[in-house]
Amino acid sequence: MKDVGSMIPNQYKITTSNVNVDYGSKRALHDINLQIEEKEVTALIGPSGCGKSTFIRCLNRMNDLIEGCKVEGKIMIDDVDINSSDTDIVELRARIGMVFQKPNPFPKSIYDNVAYGPRIHGIAKSNEDLDNIVMKSLKRAGLWNEVEDRLDASGLSLSGGQQQRLCIARAIAVNPDILLMDEPCSALDPIATAVIEELINELKERYTIVIVTHSMQQAARLSEKTAYFHLGKMIEYDVTSNIFTNPKHEMTEAYISGRIG
């Protein structure tokens, strides 16, 4: 691990040290140490049940919602420990957007879906302001042209890929600086997936992105760095090209060559 750390410049957006997660008596994550750089895409890969989703949910404390889930260790975001009691969870989540495996638009209009975050946080000063935020977010999510003329339609009336982009728009409308994506394309067809991937490539100009994916190719296409998880442990973390061409650990190699997984 040490040599990985020395490779990477000192200013990290997210640093985790010795993160352990327990579900009741079962340990789901063991001692995760990871540094994530600003405005890069970091991919988490590994076979299912390896803990990558659990890990990404630690970063905005979504695991608080799960009964009997305990998180230990330090998670520093911009040099603040998010697990400390001083951290305001509402503020934290406003700074960190999240996109889920299955598109989950609220059963409201497209406009209200995007406006939801700004409204609760009181970001918009006026109605025009809110209109602007909605438009900007939809544009950034690449959805504006498709829904421009039917903002009042239900979010559920969109196709799967559009719904997922709506969820991305909803997340960035709050103006976060980190975006967490938990297998955002697993419920989508290849064409919609390509659109989302293109979008992620554009978004990384502005946001630090952590993406969980079950597709190695997607990780290779999108990310700067990749972490390989196996059975609750982080096996290897390196620049993506290194992971896929020259893995240091034999388990990583076994996974990317398709022998396990």
């Binding site: 979504m62 919602l65 609220f106 709050v174």
Partner: peptide
């Protein structure tokens, strides 16, 4: 998933209830 989506945007629990769950 709707509860999670709302929480991830930084709403308090009562906001989730009032603005997402009850309308749904």
């Amino acid at each position: 998933s709707l509860r999670e989506g709302s929480a991830a945007l930084g709403s308090t629990q009562s906001e989730t209830v009032k603005l997402v769950i009850l309308p749904a």
